[in-house]
Design a protein around this nucleic acid. Structure first.
Lengths: 221, 221
DNA sequence: TAGATTGTTAATCGATTAACAATC
DNA sequence: TAGATTGTTAATCGATTAACAATC
């Protein structure tokens, strides 16, 4: 079974390369802008130029969505947008729950661009009694104790975790209990979840580490 | 010059592997917690277990900081923390400017953990006259028009960009003009900056893409 | 001492880049 | 048609993982 596996079978088995997946939103952003400016066909060369990337890499990345282009002309912009959106699951908006309406949680509630990213935060939860009942960014804050039940009743798949690190595991457990399958973790805590539950880290420290370590090199030279 | 380059020379030339650099904050977080709980020595095995990572990888990653450990016992926790902080440039707090005090900018202003990440946002700027003069999270919002001048007078190196995408390039230009050397870009815009200026992307879409594409696979199976 | 862990070298793996035939 | 671009295969590159001697 191992040696006889074809390329498409292995891709099927482990999914597309994560680096490629992470680049797709960049392409999507560029192609949407080009479409909005009236362009019908876009080539990898063009996208790559815009992003200062390698055209071959762009082509390989786009290939994971299954799109096919036309030699000499490129890809149909509308088709390409659709292909990326479908691949990422952004063609249908997914409802999500937010836990933790502090500074960051409030910002996430107000982040309008999520609709371009296939996500919609439909409810926000907090354990702080003084916050519960208040309306933030058009959504009423509900008590955290109601999250599990509501998640399972509403068949929510995505949980956005923006609570203090000390509460992260407890709240994550409640999300899992409510049937949530993917946790977008904005805390610094590591989460223990069943193997079928996805955790995607979104904490700032890793990005900042890349910035400051490079800056340190700049300053030394 | 190419074939005769030693390993340390190439490392010097292109810096440590970026994936390793990005993992350092995770280790730092774990080791700080262990130190706070009274532990003096920590081993890679232990750190790896905590993070569900590979011990060999942890050891290699830590090696880029220059720390040396003791066989059988591991690393001195305090030394290790110091080594990571120094490597990342987090041992001395760097002052930073924030441009754009919207939802996200406000959250960043209120993000207390930056002090653990070697950064301090010392001033916030916005072009919106109704925001200017207001105090947010203890800092008075200044007019964007003053940013360039202040950045150069205060020798600010880090600019946090949280303005609308449409203004991103203009504000980035102003940051560069003010002598800022590293831009932490929270917008979706691609920035054109001189080659000596560092841009680190911090927009959510790439992380969310990783989450939703994996979720889509989960739901299909 | 014995055994666990470090530091380092070698092997593997996967992602990026290059090459090139097919084609609109 | 000629030339640009696709799709795909091969080569390169870098990161991860494995192996193992050194050592506290």
């Amino acid at each position: 079974m191992s040696t006889m596996m074809t390329d498409s079978e292995t891709t099927e088995a482990r999914g597309a390369p994560l680096p490629s997946v992470r680049r797709l939103p960049l392409y999507l952003n560029v192609v949407r802008a080009l479409r909005d400016s009236g362009r019908e066909m876009v080539s990898c060369t063009h996208i790559a130029e815009e992003l200062q990337a390698d055209p071959t890499q762009v082509r390989k990345d786009l290939a994971i969505t299954g799109i096919t282009g036309k030699p000499k002309v490129g890809y149909d912009a509308v088709e390409l947008i659709e292909a990326i959106e479908v691949f990422l699951g952004w063609n249908n908006i997914s409802d999500a729950f937010l836990a933790g309406v502090g500074n960051l949680g409030t910002a996430l509630l107000g982040y309008r661009r999520f609709e371009n990213l296939g996500m919609n935060i439909v409810a926000a939860f907090d354990s702080n009694q003084t916050k519960v009942g208040r309306t933030v960014e058009g959504r009423k804050i509900l008590p955290l104790s109601r999250m599990t039940n509501l998640a399972s009743r509403m068949h929510i798949h995505i949980g956005v975790l923006a609570v203090p690190a000390s509460a992260a595991q407890t709240v994550a457990d409640q999300m899992v209990e409510g049937g949530i399958l993917a946790i977008w973790n904005f805390t610094t805590a590591r989460l223990n979840v069943p193997s079928n539950v996805i955790v995607e880290r979104a904490d700032f420290s890793q990005s900042l580490a890349a910035l400051t370590s490079r800056l340190k090199r700049t300053l030394k030279s």
